[in-house]
Design a protein around this nucleic acid. Sequence first.
DNA 1: CCGCGTGAGTTTCCTTAGGGAACCGACACT
DNA 2: AGTGTCGGTTCCCTAAGGAAACTCACGCGG
Lengths: 168, 168
Amino acid sequence: MTRTPLTDVACSIARATDLFADAWTALIMRDVLVGVNRFDDLARDLGISRKILAARLSRLVGEGVLTRERYQEHPPREHYLATEKGKDLYPVLLALMRWGDRWYGESGPPVHIRHLECGHDTEAVTTCGHCGDELTADNTTQLPGPGGRIGPGTQVLGPLIASRRPPA
Amino acid sequence: MTRTPLTDVACSIARATDLFADAWTALIMRDVLVGVNRFDDLARDLGISRKILAARLSRLVGEGVLTRERYQEHPPREHYLATEKGKDLYPVLLALMRWGDRWYGESGPPVHIRHLECGHDTEAVTTCGHCGDELTADNTTQLPGPGGRIGPGTQVLGPLIASRRPPA
DNA sequence: CCGCGTGAGTTTCCTTAGGGAACCGACACT
DNA sequence: AGTGTCGGTTCCCTAAGGAAACTCACGCGG
């Protein structure tokens, strides 16, 4: 398939996407973060091809998102643990989950998230780090930042936004 | 490739993933939400194969995430707009972007998000809908909810969590 | 000592989605 | 008539994904 490499694209979504956007990575991360972290358990739980699982795991380890640790000798047994970088993907999973619950959860969400600090079952809300209000597609704009540069994926974005989006 | 269908899996992440987790969908949604919404512009901006772009767009329209609208006759010109369901994917994009910025943005984030209501450039924070504090992998647990059922993807989750995760 | 079970991957073979690039029809502009 | 743009299709080829068998290292029960 020759997935076009997105790594060199300016947009951070593309960078994240490049790692995260295949059928399995998100599911693997969810399982690992929840405590399913041995090879066979993952294969069983996800129904994923073992070949692909091995490939994904080693990529995730290579990216520094997971670590592989031998948690017992005799017999040698390994498991995968999320690094800080890996745990930091949790908000992405929460956002995906919330969207899935909202738009496909006829019978109610299959799992509840409980926030241990306040003790309530809760829903993830994506908020402004500054004022705490919810962020939506309509109440935000994008501005080029310091790392902004030109390249596929942001190529014509400036001009296009300018021309297509009435400044109002 | 025969992507294993994830639609019938209990987990909402899987449902969302099924639509969202390919190399391009996230990028397409970002572009559309930002105002790049004509076929040729998308193809140019993303460097995506036109065949795949056509396929993705029609899937997204089929899923009710985008609509295709003729915005002028003479010459006939179409564009794609995000529905409510589509706009609601914005938090997922924000979460991805934040992760990418954090872990790959050596030179600073390529784009800034400005929250129009408070007027500040901001970062997306995923918070507890109840108390407003930030949600992390460490301060939350998952509990089976009303829609919970058994099937691939949640198959052995219960037992596994129970056995592997010390209740502390 | 032998066979069986388990964990953790590899290997093999086949199918099929994705990339590239050309092609197409409708219209407009000059 | 010739050139351009938009919005797609069609073709061929490659390589990634799926299924299932195979491997290797160990541990256990008899």
